Amino acid sequence: MTEIVRDDNHSDGSPTVGGTGIRVENVADAYEYSGYSPDEIVDHYPTLTLQDVHAALAYFYGNSEEFDQLPKARNNDEEAT
């Protein structure tokens, strides 16, 4: 079973697909904004399984409020520099 994990020492604590280091956000962007199918995402990220992709998408859509806040936080960080 695919696990979505967080590690403050990796990917700035962003949720990643366990054992891969690939951010949930990257999988969701490939699906939603780039138009890749889950099978194409597996081709693009060979360390992912189809189960991993579906778990990442389920996490993304189940926690959308968390991801809605990410661009704001990044913009605030960029403005501070």
Rank of each mutant, 00 (worst) to 15 (best):
Y59S: 01
S14R: 15
A28L: 07
L48P: 08
E78P: 00
S11K: 12
P38K: 10
S64D: 05
T2V: 15
F67L: 05
E66Y: 15
S11E: 14
G35T: 04
G19L: 11
A30P: 00
N26W: 09
E40H: 06
V27K: 03
D12P: 00
Q51V: 05
V27Y: 03
S64E: 12
T2D: 04
K72M: 05
A73Y: 07
I22Y: 01
Q69N: 04
I41Q: 04
E65M: 07
T16Q: 11
D77Y: 10
H54F: 12
G13K: 05
D43K: 06
G21P: 05
L50S: 12
S11Y: 03
T81L: 04
F67C: 09
T47C: 01
G21I: 10
Y33F: 10
I41W: 11
T16Y: 02
A28S: 11
D68A: 10
D43P: 01
V17D: 03
T16C: 15
S11C: 14
N26Q: 09
N75K: 14
A58E: 12
T81N: 03
A30I: 00
V17A: 07
T49E: 08
K72D: 12
Q51E: 15
A56W: 03
D77P: 00
T49Q: 04
K72A: 13
I22Q: 04
V53C: 03
G18V: 09
Y31E: 08
Y59Q: 01
D29Y: 13
T47M: 09
L50Y: 04
D39K: 08
E65P: 01
Y36H: 13
F60L: 00
S34R: 13
I41N: 06
S14F: 15
Y36G: 00
V5F: 02
I22T: 08
S14Y: 13
E66L: 15
E40G: 12
G35M: 04
Y36L: 15
L70P: 02
G62F: 06
Q51P: 01
L70T: 12
H10M: 11
E65T: 09
Y45K: 02
I22E: 04
T81E: 07
Y31I: 04
T81P: 00
E78G: 01
D68I: 05
A80C: 06
A28N: 06
I41A: 08
R74I: 08
E40C: 05
L70A: 05
N76V: 03
L50E: 10
D12I: 05
